[in-house]
Nucleic acid binder design. Structure first.
Lengths: 157, 157
DNA sequence: TAATTCCTGACTAAATTAGTCAGGAATTAC
DNA sequence: GTAATTCCTGACTAATTTAGTCAGGAATTA
């Protein structure tokens, strides 16, 4: 599947949106500052997340990004797949022609591993973390720390 | 954790050894040819696998690499950890100081994800694949295809 | 009309992955 | 012994991916 910091950035940003969505769209500038990710890099990642149908952008003042689906329908697997492209870990892309037209020795291993990993990661949805007391406490602290959502214009819901 | 082709190379090579171990040590030259991985790159990976205590080298003609542990005691997680270093997916390395000395928003997410992923991958041992009929059939085919283990001197067991 | 924010594409820099090369050390077969 | 085999090491290069920069345009709001 490929699990790297790129996927972590994406999941982190999506979590950030999910946690603050009740207040309105979340700007990339906010995420950039709070999570310490470069703005332009975020824009690249969100281009992919938008193409993957996970978020939608709202332009203009008061705009930002919103989840395109309910938080209980967006899984960690969805996010990682959107930015990291490959879910499949087989060399051949699941076609079974990895070794001179035949399945290679470890084809079955990677195939099963991919399936299991996918099943596991797609079982973790964003909303599982939104309503947890320990996390919503953190959210409050950080909102204060960054002065987030103070004096912000309201976008059209 | 970080799951990339590097880890796949390592697991593939280890599988190859496990599958052929009954015949004796397996040379990197053989693995290189059969699995299509550059010999020198394999040497780099095996330096790490040896340091990780997963394999031991046997020098001289008839030599090669052997598993340092029984196949039922070597997991996919062990192998990936040996070559890819990091198991932990938190930004802070599990210390909880990811955001100005405090736990960052997604600390808990990554911590739990790391634990679960590790538990999952460490549950898959090499021996689970060695004795499967579909795979041992493939092994035979490929041994013939590559003329493997023909006219090889026997190393000291 | 000005400010805000998404959105796009081209470019650069740093890190990682993959591969190359040259040579040394241990072991076996002769 | 000598030659062949194989592990083993370190330095180097190339390709790819990740991360970040920059400049500017498009939609929206105040």
């Amino acid at each position: 599947m490929r699990l790297s910091t790129k996927g972590r950035y994406a999941v982190t940003a999506m979590m950030d949106i999910a946690l603050h969505e009740r207040v309105g769209p979340v700007t990339l500038a906010d995420i950039s500052q709070c999570q310490g990710i470069s703005l332009s890099y975020l824009e690249q990642l969100f281009a992919k997340l938008r193409k993957g149908g996970l978020v939608e952008g709202v332009r203009g003042p008061g705009g930002g990004y919103r989840l395109a689906l309910p938080a209980d329908q967006i899984s960690v697997a969805d996010i990682i797949q959107s930015v990291d492209e490959k879910l499949d870990m087989t060399k051949c892309g699941g076609k079974g022609n990895c070794s001179q037209g035949e399945k290679c020795l470890t084809h079955q291993l990677w195939f099963e591993l991919s399936c299991n990993l996918y099943r596991f990661l797609s079982g973790i949805k964003l909303d599982q973390y939104v309503n947890r007391p320990d996390i919503s406490e953190l959210v409050k602290q950080q909102d204060i720390q960054y002065g987030r959502f103070l004096n912000r214009p309201q976008a059209n819901a």
